[in-house]
Design a protein around this nucleic acid. Structure first.
Lengths: 181, 181
DNA sequence: ACTGCCATGTAACGTGTTACATGATTCC
DNA sequence: GGAATCATGTAACACGTTACATGGCAGT
């Protein structure tokens, strides 16, 4: 999966692993996450498989390695996009697991945990709400873009906002119910 | 993580791997998923670590192996529950990845994919809505339950319903926008 | 006879996480 | 002088997925 995200970003223009790490920490933070260790190793694997190429700028000890997509890389990305997803994305949500098994826990401890989550998700929502006004509606690179790309980027951002709003409302109702018990 | 889900279910009463697989396919389907291969291997690991014990019923070639939680197992579960989660659960959502990079795709193909997802998620929502009337508000086992357990089970189910409603509404709006383009 | 569900497991592979490790440059 | 950010990588381990593999029992 990360493979296609890296190819997806590199289709617009060449980037370093560090740049891709930054893209994942901003543009895709609401639907995919990866650690830098995984990004660097996956980039190397993609290069070995001929889907990417890289060059080192200024051969100083610790220079930048800039990756570019190859024709095979574009083909692999297009082929993946052409196969529609026909199942639901399986979800994994640790807080819900904890809650499901919280029957014996102290009420005050649960409320503390829920309130922490409420604050964290409020922050995430605030971040999303600032994205479009920060020029995020035109993010990765510049050239080789079609007119519809910002449409889809904004659609995923809209998902992120709706998700956070739903989640916060659910937390608020749950906190109120627990307090009333 | 699966470790604690298995311990969580087994705190109520002993079960087989097959039973646990069924629990994961129903009770926790909206927040955690695991394959039977992983369930069986994790159960073995937990037994090796002394958190579970098992007995074989009727020593026929292919009998049932019934797992029970040990005192150490309960302690491990309680300890995990006592450490509150202070970060947001990272999300991974394949359809959003595909959508994010769909700028060059054929509009009709994207619409097909979104409509398939809409139907699948409608089915999932329908399943959730039938749960409480099917006695799911009192699911795993029977004994050793506290009064607040159904409260938390219903809270996670409520999350699942709200999530699906939000997701379907988002899909509907997106489909309408795409059609209008 | 065949289908579907009960019931268990292994093996190989793929993905993801944590920790270790280094060093330059920029801003305060 | 110190902290933050830029920049890259490896190693060990943990977790998750797919495929292979077996066989009983109940219902049609």
């Amino acid at each position: 999966m990360l493979k296609y995200i890296l190819l997806g970003f590199l289709q617009y223009n060449p980037m370093t692993g560090y740049d891709l790490k930054a893209q994942l920490a901003t543009s895709t933070m609401h639907f995919w996450h990866a650690y830098h260790s995984q990004i660097y190793t996956t980039l190397r694997t993609l290069e070995e498989d001929g889907l990417l190429e890289s060059v080192m700028t200024d051969e100083t000890p610790l220079g930048k390695r800039i990756y570019s997509i190859t024709a095979s890389g574009r083909a692999a990305l297009d082929e993946w996009l052409a196969q529609p997803q026909t199942r639901v994305s399986p979800s994994k949500h640790e807080l819900l697991v904890r809650l499901f098994f919280s029957g014996r826990r102290d009420k005050a401890a649960i409320l503390d945990e829920l309130r922490i989550q409420r604050r964290l998700h409020q922050d995430v929502l605030a971040t999303y709400q600032q994205f479009p006004t920060q020029g995020w509606d035109n993010p990765p690179g510049s050239e080789t873009r079609t007119a519809s790309e910002p449409f889809f980027w904004l659609a995923t951002l809209d998902y992120g906002q709706r998700y956070e709003e739903m989640y916060i409302a659910w937390l608020d109702d749950l906190i109120a119910q627990l307090e009333a018990l």
